[in-house]
């Protein structure tokens, strides 16, 4: 027993120590630094203060936080709406097609993230293809702006995070027992009714994972609003970067990051709750149920 304990420490030590030092402590540091004053040279001053947190009540911030949340919710909803039928279709395809289709879905996302955003910038450019096609069809006027607003951010958020919704939904849909749908229809349910009352509850775990996989990174997105949005469509990530790189006010950036962490923490607690009750990590499984 004692020997086993020592072996456990040896094997856990390296990764535990590394992550504690370079992940755990820095995360705590964010909270601490948000109570420090800024020094005029872009560093962190001595002493403690509430001033930074108080300055967050500036009316700009609630608007930015609200925009961040609604854009993330909208992106999550759109991703689920597209991923559900598409994932279902792939899961029902003949076995040898499934992997090929999933590969086809994943390949574009092996390209650099920035290049994918840039591809949309080219497409939505005032002289780009989409604008010109839309003008030829009479859909757009020369004044139509396709970029630099919240709509463009939402579009690219969906583009970027849709595969993260597709993968868990496909994984859950592939494991689903489709005989249940036939049984529901035989028992008099309509196709749509069977879909809502049998299929959706059956893949519930996949759905929640998909929603969180989109929602959390969307909350913290910074490059997408930076490149696709305008001055009036900033998200909280933009403000963190601005405070860090433009004003070089690290305590202020920390307070914003702490705020974002708290916003992320709510869905994260949901994940953990969901995972502890489910089956994924062996370490978190209650020991009573272990065989």
């Amino acid at each position: 027993m004692k020997r086993g304990r020592r072996a456990e420490f040896w094997i856990t030590g390296p990764s535990f120590g590394w992550l504690l030092l370079w992940f755990g402590l820095p995360t705590l540091a964010v909270f601490l630094v948000s109570f420090r004053p800024a020094d005029p040279f872009g560093g962190i001053g001595a002493g403690w203060t509430w001033a930074t947190w108080r300055s967050l009540s500036n009316p700009n911030y609630p608007a930015i936080i609200w925009r961040t949340v609604w854009l993330s919710v909208a992106a999550t909803a759109l991703c689920l709406l597209l991923a559900l039928p598409a994932g279902y279709y792939v899961a029902r395809a003949p076995r040898r097609w499934r992997n090929r289709l999933m590969l086809l879905i994943v390949i574009p996302f092996w390209t650099n993230f920035l290049i994918r955003i840039f591809a949309w910038k080219v497409l939505l450019h005032p002289e780009g293809l989409l604008k010109q096609a839309g003008m030829a069809l009479g859909l757009f006027t020369p004044e139509t702006q396709l970029m630099y607003h919240a709509g463009a951010i939402l579009l690219v958020l969906v583009y970027t995070y849709l595969p993260f919704a597709l993968l868990p939904i496909y994984a859950a849909a592939e494991r689903f027992d489709y005989a249940l749908l036939e049984a529901a229809c035989d028992l008099g349910s309509s196709r749509l009714g069977a879909f809502y009352r049998v299929f959706l509850p059956g893949i519930r775990r996949g759905l929640t994972t998909a929603a969180l996989m989109v929602f959390i990174p969307a909350l913290g997105s910074y490059v997408i609003p930076d490149l696709m949005g305008g001055a009036s469509s900033e998200m909280i990530g933009n403000k963190i970067a601005q405070r860090t790189f433009v004003d070089r006010n690290l305590p202020h950036a920390s307070a914003l990051s702490a705020l974002l962490s708290l916003t992320v923490l709510i869905p994260m607690i949901l994940i953990l709750y969901h995972r502890v009750r489910g089956s994924a990590p062996p370490a978190l499984r209650p020991t009573e149920t272990a065989p």
């Binding site: 856990t12 990764s15 535990f16 992550l19 504690l20 370079w22 992940f23 755990g24 402590l25 820095p26 995360t27 540091a29 964010v30 630094v33 962190i44 969180l212 959390i216 990174p217 909350l219 913290g220 997105s221 910074y222 990530g237 963190i240 970067a241 860090t244 690290l250 950036a253 920390s254 990051s257 974002l260 962490s261 992320v264 994260m268 994940i271 990590p281 370490a283 978190l284």
Partner: peptide, 24 residues
């Protein structure tokens, strides 16, 4: 605790990790 430390970096947004490491 080990699992928490391994799992958290997967779900935390990149910007938070970047910001906290910069501060550190």
């Amino acid at each position: 605790w080990h699992y928490g430390l391994v799992y958290a970096p997967l779900v935390i947004p990149d910007i938070l990790m970047g910001m906290s490491l910069l501060l550190f």
